[in-house]
């Protein structure tokens, strides 16, 4: 990680990932510049989530490189990759995936403790991140918060570690159109303030007009020979 460039974005080279069910995702080349905001579009099941999981190092590709700020996350092993993800990648999920039984503030503090333990004054940072997103009741258990409040906590948790890239997986899927727009605005502005690149996945065509750049994920899907044979069976 010595050559890590915090200003660097995401660069994918010769990536190949094979699903168990005989479907392959191949990305020859894809770049997201630092601070850039991109929509990964496509129908459900075309591989959007998988691509995000690959970028975050949750899934490991068969071959290829995936650079975040100049560091190849695919080359990192074990806890080094977990540490890198915690520090450089912020993730927002459709169902928020907040830790039940913890307060809003604790959810954000946990992100700092696990992902960026070297950052000073974690409590001040966590409170600032939440308040900037309009959260007032920091000590309420997350399960008692409204959907909108939970979303704010989820976003605060993703950006508090000052990541290079924020990955938002279908953040609007369970919201009505008005709230969906607000949610996307929230995530976009938070990423902008944090200086992080943003990749949002969505099957909702309405979002295409919001983002200046859209990548169609379906183009990366390859039904492999073995996969077809498997499907024919």
């Amino acid at each position: 990680m010595t050559n890590f460039d915090p200003q660097g974005g995401v660069s994918i080279r010769g990536l190949r990932f094979r699903y168990d069910r005989g479907f392959t995702l191949e990305v020859a080349r894809l770049d997201v510049a630092a601070g850039e905001q991109v929509l990964f579009a496509g129908a459900s099941g075309c591989g959007k989530s998988t691509l995000l999981h690959l970028i975050s190092g949750i899934e490991t590709p068969e071959t290829g490189s995936l650079f975040i700020g100049g560091t190849d996350i695919c080359a990192l092993r074990g806890s080094a990759r977990d540490t890198f993800r915690g520090r450089r990648v912020g993730m927002v999920f459709q169902t928020f995936q907040l830790l039940q039984g913890f307060t809003a503030l604790e959810n954000v503090l946990l992100s700092l403790m696990l992902g960026a333990p070297t950052l000073d004054r974690p409590r001040v940072r966590a409170e600032a991140a939440l308040e900037r997103l309009g959260m007032r009741d920091l000590h309420a258990p997350v399960e008692r918060l409204s959907v909108g409040q939970q979303q704010r906590v989820a976003v605060a948790r993703a950006i508090v570690t000052e990541p290079s890239v924020v990955l938002a997986d279908e953040p609007t899927a369970s919201l009505d159109p008005a709230n969906a727009e607000a949610a996307v605005d929230l995530i976009r502005s938070a990423a902008r303030v944090a200086g992080a690149a943003l990749i949002v996945t969505s099957h909702d065509p309405a979002l295409r007009s919001v983002f200046s750049r859209t990548v169609d994920v379906a183009q990366f899907g390859v039904a492999s020979a073995t996969g077809l044979a498997g499907a024919a069976r």
Partner: peptide
């Protein structure tokens, strides 16, 4: 919960 902790940067050993 484990999956969330891992996303946030906790290692498998942790």
């Amino acid at each position: 919960q484990v999956a969330i902790l891992r996303v946030l940067g906790a290692s498998a050993w942790r």
